[in-house]
């Protein structure tokens, strides 16, 4: 099982780095949006809530461009059947899920670095911020992987995926924004409840998606 998983992940990583579609989209998107916000506000945003909201909107929308790409490429080049005749659908799901998680965490880290660099924000609780960012991006990946598959199978490029994913992701989106906002304020707080909520949310959706994925990833 682990070997099969590793082979799938290795294949996807090789293809992604060779085709370099994801990397270029994500990098350009997050940089452009952050800088344009920097321009618009001259780098001075006083309310921490606004900082957090902008940060998460950038992460969310750069995620929306990439999370369904992993499946879309398989459908577009109709290599999905090739995978299905060699591996069970759950192995394919887990490998895509892990890739989406890595992609989302990389996006989150990159966006926060660019954000702090471009827009003057005072981070009081750095470690908490990183923890929430990672928990949030992981839960984004967990929640939207199957929806990415649905959007890819439906054949619609990016648009449908965002529409489908947004209402499902809204709960964790609001929790993430609120807890990140507190990181930009002085008073001490514990991000534990937010992180637990985010992880619980992703565990539940991850489990349900694990069971549902084989129903849609077949008969190509």
């Amino acid at each position: 099982m682990i070997k099969a998983l590793w082979r799938n992940i290795q294949k996807d990583i090789l293809i992604e780095f060779r085709s370099r579609i994801i990397v270029s989209i994500v990098l350009s998107f997050s940089v452009i949006v952050t800088i344009s916000i920097g321009f618009a506000t001259g780098g001075i945003i006083n309310s921490p809530l606004l900082h957090a909201a902008i940060l998460w909107i950038i992460i969310f929308f750069s995620g929306m461009n990439t999370l369904s790409h992993v499946f879309f490429r398989e459908i577009e080049e109709s290599t999905a059947l090739f995978g299905v005749i060699h591996y069970p659908a759950v192995v394919i799901y887990l490998s895509k899920l892990l890739i989406n998680c890595c992609v989302m965490v990389v996006i989150a880290i990159m966006v926060i670095i660019i954000y702090v660099f471009v827009i003057s924000v005072s981070v009081y609780h750095g470690i908490y911020l990183i923890a929430i960012l990672i928990a949030g991006s992981l839960s984004l990946a967990f929640a939207t992987t199957v929806i990415g598959a649905i959007a890819a199978l439906a054949g619609a490029r990016g648009g449908l995926f965002t529409i489908l994913a947004f209402p499902v992701v809204l709960p964790l989106f609001t929790v993430a924004i609120q807890s990140t906002a507190r990181c930009f304020e002085q008073q001490v707080f514990s991000p534990l409840s937010a992180i637990i909520f985010l992880l619980a949310f992703s565990m539940v959706l991850g489990m349900v998606s694990y069971l549902l994925f084989p129903y849609i990833w077949r008969e190509f």
Partner: peptide
């Protein structure tokens, strides 16, 4: 979007179940 696709019923019901599982979380939030 999926109306022509033979997998349409499966795609719709999987999405509905995902939404159905995710919605109670909002009540806590």
């Amino acid at each position: 979007i999926v109306s022509g696709n033979p997998k349409a019923p499966m795609l719709e019901s999987v999405y509905l179940i995902i939404a159905f599982v995710a919605s109670p979380f909002l009540i806590f939030v």
